[in-house]
Design a binder for these strands. Sequence first.
RNA 1: GCCGGGGUGAUGGAACUGGUAGACGUGCCGGACUCAAAAUCCGGUGCCGCAAGGCGUGGGGGUUCGAGUCCCCCCCCCGGCACCA
Length: 933
Amino acid sequence: MQPNYHPASIEQQAQKHWETRQAFRAPDPSDDPQSDKPKYYCLSMFPYPSGKLHMGHVRNYTIGDVLSRYHRMKGCNVMQPMGWDAFGLPAENAALANNVPPAAWTYSNIEYMKKQLKSLGLGIDWAREVTTCKPDYYRWEQWLFTRLFEKGIIYKKTASVNWDPVDNTVLANEQVIDGCGWRSGAPVEKRDIPMYFFRITGYAEELLTGLDTLDGWPEQVKTMQRNWIGKSHGCEIHFPYDMGSVGAAGVLKVYTTRPDTLMGVTYVAVAAEHPLAVRAAATTENPELSSFIEACKRGGTAEAEVAAMEKRGMDTGLFVKHPLTGEKLPVWVANYVLMGYGEGAVMAVPAHDERDFEFADKYGLPVKHVIASQELLSKWEKLTFSLEAEGIEPDHEEIGRSGMFIYLNDVLADLTAAPSDAFIASVNEFAKQLQLESPNTEYGTLVSSGKCNGMGFQEAFDTISADLQAKGLGQKRTQFRLRDWGISRQRYWGCPIPIIHCPVCGDVPVPDEQLPVKLPENVVPDGAGSPLAKMPEFYMTICPQCGKAAKRETDTMDTFVESSWYYARYASPDCTTGMVDERAKHWLPVNQYIGGIEHAILHLLYARFFHKLMRDEGLVQGDEPFTNLLTQGMVVAPTFFREDAHGRKQWINPSEVEVSTDERGRPTGATLKADGLPVHIGATEKMAKSKNNGVDPQAIIDAYGADTARLFMMFASPPEQSLEWSDAGVEGAFRFLKRVWKAVHDHVEKSPPSPPFAKGGEFASEDLSAAAKALRLQLHQTIAKVDDDMGRRKTFNTAIAANMELLNALAKFDERTPVAHSVAQEVLEAIALMLNPIVPHLCQTLWAELRPGSDMLDQPFPEADPGALVQDEIEIVIQVNGKLRGNLTVAKSADKAALEHLALAHPAVEKQLAGAVPKKIVVVPGRLINIVV
RNA sequence: GCCGGGGUGAUGGAACUGGUAGACGUGCCGGACUCAAAAUCCGGUGCCGCAAGGCGUGGGGGUUCGAGUCCCCCCCCCGGCACCA
């Protein structure tokens, strides 16, 4: 055996061996009808082919490969596929920058990245590769689109987009920087255009309740999806127009989850595009109002941007009437109310809503308290008592009408005699409570609300909605926050929407036999408008229904559509007769899905939605596509920069920087390797081009091999946490692999391989020394732990640490007897098997040395030997008042009384007690004794 | 702004179910080997203290015999917010 570890040659050999054996081809049921192995479909989110692999990819695919290889060793028939999420904006950006067609750029990126993925030694079935920009993939997306269009699940309506008035083009949210177009710099406007929508809201209820069945998903992801779907129980309320000011009959509709605060409404706010706002601008001679409404239409459509905006508004001069009291309420236009959300109008209750409060405070609108906290109620009681003491009988009816605060003012104004100090104190206390600087948004008891006074939330909800319903001015309603999914994109590099616009027949779906509608691949976009809309050879066609001249749709689909069903296509990638075939029913659902937490809501929700659409088409079985989900954290690295003469930061790659440290290893500064002059140390951030802190995985693979890259990635942190890149950590991983290599080398060179202790039958337990027994105990504890870490917990860092400890223990075990050699054989074989999912090239090679003639590919995962795990003595901890004071080694069978006795006799305990009598003794069996004095 | 997550030695992290805080790795210190260096191997390493001991998991409070872990408030960092993928 080679004395030194040379990753380059062993990795190449191992990969060649896997290739020759076709080791990772996932057999379909028809290939291997006799197989009784359970299937394990392990899916990693496919990459966008951006050019080269980044560390996030390496991490994602290594996690997937570890789980795949582990399950293979546990006896599963594993499918691990890979493909390309190949449509998207970056290809168009690259086209603008380099004048290359997006297709050519994308295909060459795929070619390079595929080579990189192969060098990582992933156990992928490449025969299942899918590429979403190829017609054999997207034709089925178009096919499903036409089905859904006919079923009415896809429909057309107008929606707002970011419009660049200089480039005459629609901008993505990320192309809007500080409210301006990224290339033109012109202020962005909202523009309404017609778009196709998926009626995902029709599945809102099922998408919500389905989450309860996903036990294998992280709770945080399910919570995010629940909040996103946002089911709420509330009330639709109609505010009749005030004829005098509006000049027309009608009602203003709002939806609220707090109908209990209805008596606290002091104004209503509408979106700039709302009919009432439009009417006010048209009918009043108020140029300020018109210009305010215009100003509201400027800016982008991103919700984060809108929410962060300063809240501004303007009185329209119009009024609506309160549905229960008939009181006139002013109608305001507000920039924080959006036409696309709900009714485009809200009822404002400043006393009990943060946003309304802020707005009312800013514009001096009245605040009317109708929900009392316990604190307020007790103060009110005190005040009533004081009123009575002053000889004033509180008029509760009047309080109900005008509200506590106004009533209180009236009472004070009417006072004839000088009030007592106690009275003034309770008035002040009450008034202070009422005028809190923040609104009370909690549920509470209704006050100043007429017949609802004293009611709690639910009773008031029921009463008020019944009253509204009786008047025909509203009713209870359940609503979702989730909106329908707009999928039209005015872009070139996407899947064409298969619709033909006929002047006679209207929107006609492209018939099956004319699919796919192929995207021309030789186009270079110029950044001004949609290229397809300028290509008559693409859009000129005839209507499939009437045969007259018609125009093809030139919009393409949101790229989220492709990634919503690729997991199903992997099961039957070569199917030419449908989206998927019978094999999808065998492979789905995905047993384990792995990808970034950034996809927690949109991608995962859309994929779940698509699965239900495909199910309803009879294409797949089951209700959910992904049984288990693992969301990996991002890869971060330190940043370094210098400032140029204009104060702009010039980011420097970590590989070009030397960090100096003090005598304790703390960083003291950094210098550029090239000139030795200092650079600034910035924050540790997600690896990104913009901060130039990316580390190229290829450089690591070239220098240390794929196994070191994989080991470091799995060791540095658990998969769900962010991973900090560290050159020293990579060195450490490499060093460990060298130690493993050397341990096996020394072992097999010492004497020829022998059967491992447990398997050989040559030796029995009685032959083992105490040290050998202890080593076997640790070995089998390690096997049990690693099995649990890889299977249940998916914490590969602790699995690796346990193997490191085991190797350290083996290094200290220096017995030279034949039985000791067979124990060492057992330990080394187990280490190779346990590490195989993580560093497969190394373990493949080591196994061949440990067991000549046998192939690692055929080995099962090791199992812990119960016989080796038996312990007769255990260590327990002694605490006094919860503080560690000593420990004891006791027989495992020791009972509670014996433990107490032993603990009290312990010298450290005697010292702490100093003669005092313990108040209480807590004994946790097998763990500790706590003596309380 | 709203929703979700995180914060533990010099450092990446461990502590899984409320039960010995800091496993394992890196760094640093010391030693062996070497003419020397690298590599490798061995030992030490939370902070304060001579020691006994005390303190210590972002900050403040609480529950408990016992809190990194549970509850309340606050600070900071990260992910998502519907046209980045």
